[in-house]
Design a protein around this nucleic acid. Structure first.
Length: 886
RNA sequence: GGGCGAUUAGCUCAGUUGGUAGAGCGCAUCGUUUACACCGAUGAUGUCGGCGGUUCGAGCCCGUCAUCGCCCACCA
């Protein structure tokens, strides 16, 4: 027996364990089946489940369960990312709380601590994914980094690095990088976020060396960098400065003489047309400096303070303090021409958004990605990999078309250490192991390993094949690679998707997936991006606790229209909790009425139109649903199910069959029970990818009553209704019946006919078929229309069918009854207010619960009203009889 | 500066090849007929951002403008 209400909390944990125990999540169960592979976007080991993950993994789980039911051998590969910078920051913070630091511990000890942290508190997110119902093959859990370098996940990274080096694509270079002075590491271009901030544009007078009373004016938003200026540039065609090219200016504050050079970079339109050149601290100036062989003077320390290359007065000052000091000193010297406020984009750290990055001259490892990018572009251009929605392919192509070398080294400890060793002359030996490097160098040579680690995206770029065992030729790699669909969001197309495409094509010759599905970004119900600082973060686990995982999943799926922001709030999840409840109650209805699935149920041999109709509707729903899922239209898929379950099956079909189930035709009753049960069962299958828990629960429960379930729903086959042709005759017949009933109800409501009043119906001008239908479905038309009789008028008028209910005068005759109806509603509401526990009030007063709990005066009042009502009812009946209703 | 997306009922959003505008919530009225009040029935509400064009016909195609959002960009 089903409980009166569904309690997700009780069911979810039990069912999840049952699934895991049955091995249903494991890949390889169906050796003869075609594989279907999804790799999870590995969440950061530091992460906790947020709404974005909930959506991302709901989508993947829908696909995984759908394909599993369709008979594919599904591998949903789980795992996590070591998340270099994020993780190192987390552990360093903990150390700081204990008054220590990574520097004090040393590298080895620090890494030991990070691993300890990872084993203890990393990976909460994986447990949280289970609460969502994620059907990953947990036995294949992977991490982007091995504990030792002989671990396969690490070997994959080393091999890739070494091969790229051997191919001449990986190299060291000294040039400007985006430097994070807070973490003291280089970051890649992608990790830079330009944020508009308000600043000043200072116009500074640089005196000419020959004529100290004459000035050339330059403008800058970063005056402190003038301490590193090594030239002033003007445009070669700029008449104003032509005579000055080759001459020198005396750099204020530093007292150095620097040249005036002609370079096309200087824009005569901007400012004074002359621009200060600081090759050591500006990407453009660096290029100018190269062209004119200028020194790239570095005036900053790695933590962003002025170093000893600058005049003594500024040494040791933080770069922002130095800015103030420089401006003040220039002012004192009368060298500030003017100051204008400007808004300009300043490079910030993409993660913290607070640290201002500094172009810094350092030696780093770069990967020349151009040749890899060509392959990645070709794969998308020729359709080996397609994006859904398509427009994201354009973004992908634009980025790859104009790609620059990727700075892959990071000055961190947590990550894949770069497999490069140096001898004391600085010669580089790149090899997968120290022994191999030593062999290259010769036995007597002392080698030192490069201390830097790789960008965390370097290893996650290998994820689709490293998780399957590459570089070893494992059976899994053979079977499950290339994968099928990648489910992710637009914000990591460049970071991750493009890198996987490049590495995948370069090292395996195959595109790592045939489809990239880009799901929407989840925002709050006001359309605001969720963030901790805004305080509008909705925790998916709280929603799961309150409404159940199924409700959350369905809410996400039905709102997941391609490419648009997805708004979600408590209210939405509540709606789909209600939907789950509806499904639950439909199951209870079936159970109470003995609707039990019959072995060998044959949809082609149904005698009843109603049953043929619902079977056809189901088949139609199934086909549309399948097509929607194949096209990644999750909103259409979920929407179609909602419509079918609620508006077709519950609102109409179950109402249609009530008279049959209460009637005396045993054969019809048996057929109807079997049909109701079969359709419900098929519906559970269709719903399962979206709402796995409640459907599995209902599947098991009905199994106890009907034929014993041999398998769980998760392992059931996706319905194949291809043999079921939609019975068009049944459809038009039932649609007519539905519209007739709707019309009757509409007329009743318009005319204020009280619900209890049963009216006679005469149908004028009905066609022969309609007369037949009216007769065939008379019982349910009477019931649902609350009619006394429903007959076709004997004389068939020409034209369309016309419904006459009672007649215009009937409304007047019933006026008194309406007052009673209103009164009754008011009283029942009063009664509910008086005792919140009374949820249903039997106004016939036969219900003991009501009598017991309702206030006595309400009971008394209702008794009186009831007598009036009875009298009124009799009068109405009489009045209706007298009315001319033909 | 370049590119992309959005603009449809009070709110949140669907609307796949152009063919009489949809859903949920909310609102109004009614309701206890043994699945469900986390429910049922009925109803009201839209110059589909503005303007122009193509077409027998445009929410959908084209042009243009406006507002909002996102991405990219060397930010003197």
């Amino acid at each position: 027996m089903l409980e009166k209400t569904y309690t997700p909390k009780d069911a979810e944990e039990r069912l999840y364990q049952a699934w895991e125990a049955s091995g249903a999540f494991r890949a390889g169960n169906k050796p003869d089946a075609k594989p279907f592979t999804i790799v999870i976007p590995p969440p950061n080991v530091t992460g906790a489940l947020h709404m974005g993950h909930a959506l991302n993994n709901t989508v993947q789980d829908i696909l995984a369960r759908f394909e599993r039911m369709r008979g594919r051998d599904v591998l949903w590969q789980p795992g996590m990312d070591h998340a270099g910078i994020s993780t190192q920051i987390v552990v360093e913070r903990q150390l700081a709380e204990r008054q220590t630091s990574r520097q004090k511990l040393g590298r080895e000890e620090f890494l030991k601590r990070v691993w300890e942290w990872k084993d203890e508190s990393g990976g909460t997110i994986l447990r949280q994914l289970k609460r969502l119902g994620a059907s990953c093959d947990w036995s294949r859990d992977r991490f982007t980094m091995g504990k030792t370098e002989t671990d396969q996940m690490s070997r994959a990274v080393l091999k890739v690095f070494v091969e790229l080096y051997a191919q001449g694509l990986m190299y060291k270079d000294t040039r400007l990088v985006n430097w994070d002075p807070s973490l003291q590491t280089a970051v890649s271009d992608l990790e830079v976020e330009n944020i508009e901030i308000k600043g000043n544009l200072w116009h500074i007078k640089y005196p000419l060396a020959d004529h100290p009373d004459q000035f050339i004016i330059v403008a800058t938003t970063r005056p402190e960098t003038m301490l590193g200026d090594t030239a002033v540039a003007v445009h070669p065609d700029d008449e104003r400065y032509r005579a000055l090219v080759g001459k020198k200016v005396r750099l204020p504050l530093s007292d150095r003489l620097i040249p005036i050079v002609a370079d096309e970079y200087a824009n005569p339109e901007k400012g004074s047309g002359a621009v200060k050149i600081t090759p050591g601290h500006d990407f453009n100036d660096y290029e100018v400096g190269r062209r004119h062989k200028l020194e790239a003077l570095n005036i900053l320390t790695l933590d962003g303070k002025i170093n000893d290359k600058a005049p003594a007065a500024y040494r040791g000052l933080d770069r922002f303090a130095a800015r103030k000091r420089v401006v003040a000193d220039l002012e004192a010297l009368g060298l500030i021409e003017k100051v204008e406020p400007v808004t300009h984009a300043v490079p910030h750290d993409e993660k913290t958004k607070t640290v201002v990055l500094e172009p810094m001259l350092t030696e780093q490892w770069y990967l020349n990605v151009k040749p890899l990018a060509q392959k990645a572009l070709a794969a998308v251009r020729d359709g080996r990999t397609k994006f859904v929605p398509e427009r994201f392919a354009d973004e992908y192509k634009r980025w790859l078309d104009d790609i620059r070398p990727w700075c892959v080294s990071r000055q961190l400890w947590w990550g894949h250490q770069i497999p490069a060793w140096y001898d004391d002359k600085g010669k580089i030996y790149v090899a997968e192991t120290e022994a191999a490097a030593q062999a290259q160098a010769g036995s007597g040579v002392k080698l030192t390993r490069d201390p830097d680690v790789l960008d965390t995206w370097f290893s996650s770029g290998l994820w689709p094949f490293s998780t399957l065992g590459w570089p070893d030729a494992t059976p899994e790699l053979q079977r499950y690679y290339p994968t099928d669909v990648l489910v992710t969001m637009f914000d990591i197309i460049f970071f991750w998707v493009a890198r996987m495409m490049m590495f995948g094509l370069h090292f395996t010759k195959d595109a790592p997936f045939h489809t990239v599905y880009i799901h929407p970004r989840v925002v709050d119900d006001k359309g605001q991006k969720m963030s901790k600082t805004r305080g509008n973060v909705i925790d998916p686990l709280t929603l799961i606790d309150e409404f159940g995982a199924d409700a959350l999943r369905f809410a996400l799926a039905i709102a997941a229209a391609a490419g648009k922001d997805l708004r979600i709030g408590r209210g939405r999840v509540e709606i789909y909790r209600n939907f789950c409840t509806k499904l639950w109650n439909a199951a209870r209805f079936c159970e109470m009425n003995g609707c039990v699935r019959v072995e060998g149920f044959d949809t082609s041999k149904l005698a009843s139109t109603v049953n043929r109709w619902i079977v056809g509707e189901l088949a139609c729903t199934r086909n549309e649903l399948t097509a929607a899922l194949e096209a990644y239209r999750f909103n259409d898929a979920a929407g179609g199910l909602y419509e079918f379950v609620w508006n077709v099956y519950c609102d109409w079909y179950l109402e249609f069959i009530k008279p049959v189930l209460n009637g005396g035709d045993e054969a019809l009753k048996a057929e109807t029970r079997a049909t109701a049960a079969w359709v419900f069962d098929e519906t559970l299958k269709l719903m399962h990818p979206f709402t796995p828990f409640i459907t599995e629960e209902l599947w098991c429960v009905t199994g106890e009553q009907g034929p014993q379930r041999k398998t769980m729903l998760i392992s059931a086959s996706w319905p194949d209704h291809s043999a079921i042709a939609r019975d068009e005759a049944a459809a038009s017949e039932m649609n007519w019946v539905k519209s007739l009933i709707s019309e009757v109800r509409s007329v009743r409501a318009e005319m204020n006919v009280p619900p209890a009043a049963k009216l006679p119906l005469q149908l004028k001008g009905a066609s022969g078929a309609q007369v037949e239908w009216l007769g065939r479905h008379n019982e349910l038309i009477l019931r649902l229309g609350r009619l006394e009789t429903a007959v076709a008028a004997s004389e068939l008028a020409k034209g369309s069918a016309q419904i006459v209910v009672g007649g215009a005068t009937a409304g007047l005759a019933l006026a008194g009854a309406i007052d009673f109806a209103k009164e009754r509603t008011r009283l029942s509401k009063d009664a509910q207010k008086a005792d919140g526990e009374i949820r249903r009030i039997d106004l016939k007063l036969g219900n003991a619960e009501f009598v017991a709990k309702a206030p006595a005066e309400v009971v008394e009042e209702l008794r009186e009203k009831r007598a009036e009502y009875e009298a009124m009812r009799a009068k109405i009946a009489e009045a209706l009889k007298r009315l001319d209703v033909s």
